[in-house]
Design a protein around this nucleic acid. Structure first.
Ligand SMILES: [Mn+2]
Ligand SMILES: [Mn+2]
Ligand SMILES: [Zn+2]
Ligand SMILES: [Zn+2]
Lengths: 153, 153
DNA sequence: TATTAAATAATAATTATTCTTATTTAGTAA
DNA sequence: TTACTAAATAAGAATAATTATTATTTAATA
């Protein structure tokens, strides 16, 4: 059951399970399009009308600290968040501030192999992420899609 | 002469040349480590003590609009800026918030070729940038270095 | 069930950035 | 050169996002 998966994520990290944390983590996963704190608040107030703004920010920090959530920054002055998931990259259009996930294991392999042979002096790589900047050609109604490329070699 | 190069960049874009714009663009180029608006103001006020904060933000917007400067985003809630230069990627450590440029034409070619054959549905790519996330192994004093990899195939 | 450290709510404060408006200036052309 | 005008700047107020403070509540544990 979905609720229990979320509870387990908190428990696995040794975090106290609170209704606020459950609601926020669930909101990020359901919204699934790099929501802002404000988006999250709006969403969870439907079921949880008394949650405090400051709590949402505090919980988000805690989730980020514990690697359950990542910050995603755009050209604008608002932080956005996403649930941790499989390694992926981002398609981003500065004009619309729209972000879509881009999964591509063939690309990951190419890049992984490249940096295996190519050493960067004085730097230990932990993760390589692409920002693929450009324009979406479809309209904004199809938000929340994820691009998963098939492995068509 | 350096000052004239900067003037020319403004002129080429059809922008009015003002002491404020000259100073800000020069500051970004000299500082050369993805400074914040605040960093720029601090630097500029040495020679230009009366520049207004709002002017710095307005000028930065104008420079970004005219493709003389780019915004650089990190995990923190402050925008950073860099002068336009050859296409490059970023080494980034979230802990220290340090960013270094990473130039690698072999890598650019691999990625360019990859996306030539690999079409992304409903998206027109304008630019592909890597965020290489990890840890710097040297201390913070060696800030402002740029990593240029030799083409040692 | 009682204890306690940690989390939350409410609200004030701070920070980064943007807006407003009066004044100044860069570029242009008489 | 000088005058003109649109655009840029300075100063300060305003806003928006985020963080800090502190009293109250609660989840986990014994
Ligand atoms: Mn802001
Ligand atoms: Mn902010
Ligand atoms: Zn994502
Ligand atoms: Zn850079």
């Amino acid at each position: 059951m979905f609720e229990n998966q979320i509870r387990n994520k908190l428990v696995e990290k040794g975090m106290k399970v609170t209704p606020q944390r459950m609601a926020i983590l669930e909101a990020i996963e359901i919204l699934n399009n790099h929501p802002t704190a404000e988006n999250i608040i709006e969403f969870i107030r439907k079921n949880h009308p008394n949650i405090s703004t400051a709590t949402v920010y505090k919980v988000l920090e805690a989730l980020v600290e514990n690697n359950l959530v990542k910050k995603v920054k755009t050209d604008r002055d608002v932080m956005r968040y996403e649930a941790i998931s499989d390694h992926h990259h981002h398609l981003y259009c500065a004009e619309s501030d729209r972000i879509e996930d881009y999964f591509d294991s063939e690309l990951n392999e190419i890049i992984g192999n490249y940096f295996k042979k190519r050493n960067i002096p004085n730097f230990r790589i932990e993760e390589v992420k692409l920002q693929i900047i450009g324009k979406f050609l479809n309209d904004e109604t199809s938000i929340n899609q994820q691009i998963h490329l098939p492995d068509n070699k």
